[in-house]
C-alpha cells in the first residue's frame, strides 16, 4: 500500500465530506433545523449541473453557478413552506417535512433525469498532478482548497461579523431576537438558503468524482450526520477536523479492510460515540 497516496486520497475524500456537511452544520447549529432532504438536494444540484453541461455549450463554472442559484431558489421555497413550523421550533414535524421534501425531490429528479447513472465530465477531473509516486487530479485539489476557504470564510462570518452575531442570536433565542429588531423569520430563510447554496456548491465540486444517480443522497446524510455529531453540533471547526479524519479513515479502511463496508464502519464509530458519550449530543 502506498501510504502517502492513501493519505492524499483520504484528505480529498475528507474535504469532500466536510464540504457536503458545512451547510447542515450551520443549519443545525444556528437554527436547530434538521434537513433530511440534504442528500437529495445534493443529488439534484449535481443533476442540474450535469444536465446543463450535456444539453448546452455552457462550461463547467457557469453550469455550476446556475445549479447553485437554482438550489438557492429551491431553498427559499422550502423555507417559506416550513415557516410556521420553524418559528414554533416544531423540530419533529420539521424533520418529517424535510424527509418528505427529499422524497419529492427524488421523484422529480426521476421524472426529469431518469434512473440511469451519469457522470459530470469536467476537464479538471482529467488533469493529473503527479509528485513522485503520489498523484491527484486538479478537481481534487480544487475540492480541497475550496473546502478550506469555505470553512475559513464561514467561521469568520459567524464569529467576527454582525451578520454572524445575528445568526447566533436567532439560534439561541429567536423570540428575544425580535425585541432586538431582528426579523427571525428572514434570518431562518437566509440560513436555509445558505444551506442550499453550500450543498449545491459541494455537489458541483464533489459529484464529478463519481457517477451520479437520482437514487443517491443517503450516504451524504449519514456522513454529514456523523460529522455534525462528532464535531459538536454547530461547531464549524470541529466539523472540518472530523470530516478530514473520516476521509482518512475511509481511505485506509477501504485499502486495508474492504471498501464495501466503509459507511458501516463509520457508523460503528458513531455508535461507539453515542454509547460512550451521549452528553456530547446535547443541543445546548
Amino acid at each position: 500500500m502506498n501510504v502517502a497516496q492513501q493519505a492524499i486520497n483520504g484528505l480529498v475524500i475528507g474535504s469532500g465530506y466536510a464540504c457536503v456537511a458545512l451547510g447542515w452544520t450551520i443549519l443545525l447549529g444556528a437554527a436547530r433545523l434538521v434537513n433530511f432532504a440534504h442528500g437529495q438536494m445534493y443529488m439534484l444540484a449535481a443533476f442540474i449541473c450535469w444536465f446543463i453541461l450535456t444539453r448546452s455549450g455552457i462550461g463547467y463554472p457557469l453550469a455550476a453557478a446556475i445549479s447553485i442559484v437554482a438550489m438557492a431558489l429551491l431553498g427559499v421555497g422550502m423555507q417559506l413552506m416550513m415557516g410556521r413550523l420553524v418559528m414554533t421550533q416544531n423540530l419533529t414535524s420539521l424533520m418529517i417535512v424535510t424527509l418528505g421534501f427529499g422524497y419529492i425531490l427524488q421523484g422529480v429528479a426521476g421524472l426529469l433525469f431518469g434512473g440511469a447513472p451519469h457522470t459530470i465530465t469536467t476537464e479538471l477531473v482529467q488533469q493529473k498532478i503527479q509528485f513522485g509516486d503520489v498523484w491527484f487530479t486538479s478537481q481534487e485539489l480544487l475540492i480541497f482548497v475550496v473546502t478550506l476557504i469555505l470553512y475559513g470564510v464561514v467561521w469568520l462570518v459567524l464569529q467576527r461579523t454582525r451578520q454572524g452575531a445575528i445568526i447566533r442570536s436567532v439560534a439561541e433565542d429567536p423570540k428575544l431576537a425580535q425585541l432586538f429588531g431582528i426579523d427571525s423569520r428572514s434570518v431562518y430563510i437566509a440560513i436555509f438558503v445558505l444551506e442550499a447554496v453550500l450543498v449545491a456548491l459541494a455537489a458541483v465540486l464533489v459529484a464529478p468524482r463519481t457517477p451520479i444517480l437520482t437514487s443517491m443522497g443517503f450516504e451524504e446524510v449519514i456522513i454529514t450526520f456523523v460529522i455534525v455529531v462528532l464535531g459538536g453540533i454547530g461547531n464549524v471547526g470541529g466539523a472540518l477536523i472530523v470530516g478530514m479524519l473520516l476521509g482518512l479513515f475511509t481511505s485506509f479502511f477501504g485499502a486495508l479492510v474492504t471498501p464495501a463496508y466503509t459507511t458501516a464502519a463509520i457508523f460503528a464509530v458513531l455508535l461507539a460515540f453515542l454509547i460512550a458519550k451521549p452528553e456530547g449530543l446535547r443541543t445546548r
Binding site: 434538521v34 443517503f218 464495501a260 459507511t263 458513531l270 455508535l271
Partner: peptide
Amino acid sequence: LATLRTREFVFSLATYAAAVVVAEI
C-alpha cells in the same frame, strides 16, 4: 440500547443511519 439517551432528531438520525448501514451491509 445504542440510542437510549438520544432524543428528537438525534434519535431519528441515529435510527436512520442504522437503516442505511444495515441496507449497505
